[in-house]
Amino acid sequence: MIRLPIFLNVAALHIPDGFLSVPVALLGLLLALIVLAYTLRQTRDLLGERQIPLLGVMAAFVFAAQSINFPVLGGTSGHLLGGALVSIVVGPWPAVLVMTVVVGLQALLFQDGGLLAIGWNIVNMAVLAVLTGALTFGLLKRLLGSGRTSLIIATMAAAWISVVLSATATGVELAASDSGLLAAVPAMAGIHAIIGLGEALITGAAVILIARARPAILYQNQDAGDYRAAYIFAVGLIIALAVATFSVLSSSLPDGLERVALDYGFADRALDPILRIMPDYTLPGIEGNIGGIIVIIGGAILAALLILLVGWLVRHRQSYRATSGESSRI
């Protein structure tokens, strides 16, 4: 059962052991522990004994759904990642638990993703994907109203953004472990910008089908935990991702500078720090990647600002509406 790399397989997001440096891996474990502790507190009240079979079956569903292939071109096929879908249907915090179990079992039972790298794999696929999916879905639903078209748009945007952001985060973690892997950031983001389209189409169709066949399922979880907290967490994670991308970029430039210094014979390392942000500097061999990274950082910061702005506007408008006695649309 050799899995061919031609599979546009989202398994490319599962970082195996050996790629992350030990400090980076430990940081990921710490972050995952903190978020999980918070998630367990969030879900403690709504998790009656009834919820445990539901969440367990949902996690098994994610495994099964990932085995439904989506034929793309020739022999290649893609499949669902599922973070955004589960997040939309069962609510963000229970979805974090479901996806954590999925990622954990993938590592333990199937060696899809490493045991030490499990922290970051959880953060990327179970936390970042789920919460940013919930944030995007929630914001767009609020902005666009409750029609079917707005449901489709919000779902597809949520799926796409969740995949692209978790892929970008994966790239940043690789680059933070080894500056030679800097190119992983634009590569991951770029490839998954395309894979994310498949995720968006599949998730959109799935949610529409559920909305038609069993609308109750889609709305029974509206009170599944604190959505506001999930949105705040998501915004925080996006900002952290932007900052991390930034610092990875700036800390890995000296490596390249040393090479320049060697090439030109002044290797005595008395390099002015200002040189490190020299704008027209490019790494030999991967020209254009720096441009790509800057675009991603800019995009991430812009997205974070936009989300903050929109969030503020929405809250402002809501409180305005509340004071003027008009009933809220949601």
Partner: peptide, 17 residues
């Protein structure tokens, strides 16, 4: 094809729940 895959995923989800 993507829509068909999505419908399959959706109905699998309903069946699972």
């Amino acid at each position: 094809r993507a829509r068909v895959t999505g419908w399959m995923v959706g109905s699998l989800m309903i069946r699972s729940m």
